[in-house]
Nucleic acid binder design. Sequence first.
DNA 1: AACGAAAATATGAAATCGCATCTTTTGAAA
DNA 2: TTTCAAAAGATGCGATTTCATATTTTCGTT
Lengths: 159, 159
Amino acid sequence: MGNHPRLQDRADSREGVPFLPDYVLFLLASTSAAASEEFHAEVRANGLRVPEWRVLACLSDADGQMVTRLAALSLMEQSRLTRIIDQMDARGLVERRSDAADRRRVRVFLTPAGADLARRMIDKARAHETALLDRLPGGSGRELKRLLRVVYRELCADD
Amino acid sequence: MGNHPRLQDRADSREGVPFLPDYVLFLLASTSAAASEEFHAEVRANGLRVPEWRVLACLSDADGQMVTRLAALSLMEQSRLTRIIDQMDARGLVERRSDAADRRRVRVFLTPAGADLARRMIDKARAHETALLDRLPGGSGRELKRLLRVVYRELCADD
DNA sequence: AACGAAAATATGAAATCGCATCTTTTGAAA
DNA sequence: TTTCAAAAGATGCGATTTCATATTTTCGTT
């Protein structure tokens, strides 16, 4: 057998090569954080926390969702959403109604005030998104969005 | 003037069109969450919380960073990182050394045990990333990664 | 040098979060 | 029709997180 050095022969063939800048989970999380930062500041300036804004947006798309489903869509744990709904209910933004067909279920609905606020915030979100995508070079933002739709759908399909 | 209906004439020209599935910040956050879920479970199975894993990975790329910079890279608030460093220090994963040139600064270094753990976790992360990208259809994962590099760089440039 | 503003980190206290578990309700099997 | 596992949501409580601010150190002016 020849004495060609195998990869394993050196301590680490990737010595000195940075990991994170080429790691997709880092890129996803960091890009998401960087892109959201500005708008999240606007959310807070409008008296909402990010999870509350997510709930409003989800319900605006599909009102009357179950707590567990809404938690998944809003990227938070169920027990956390329960308490966020408590607070939003107390503020008159949403209300709970128990499902007649299955009384374990609780469906969450926007109040008129919640629906108004959701509309206003969604308008702001659309404007911010347009500005964000316009500022990215050569349509890369819109191309990124297209790919994200593909990949997101694929990742959710496994569930 | 003609009586063509203008967009503003109807209450909302987007009535019934869902917002979130076409909103880039939603797609980014949700895709990031969905893609990271599996690996984050592995992180926790190895006795680390996600923020701790991020710190290890950052320091593995560039040891001895300042607290504030490390917090930004690790996607958390500075005061939170301070306490996470406390815990990781107590576990013997990292250590603080004050910067001789500017004594306000605290630099964070991996201990040998921390560096070992970082190496092992990065190996797992690389394997997981490969599997993840292979499972996405038609190279869309690798194309997404390419675009994320472009967009992330652009978003950070404004800072 | 003395001063004040700004930077880097730490910390106290209140709010929030997450895990485990509880209760209620359903569905299905025996 | 009884029983039992699973599903949906709520809750207690310890741990974490955040916000505001304190502390220490540096830097640029005067």
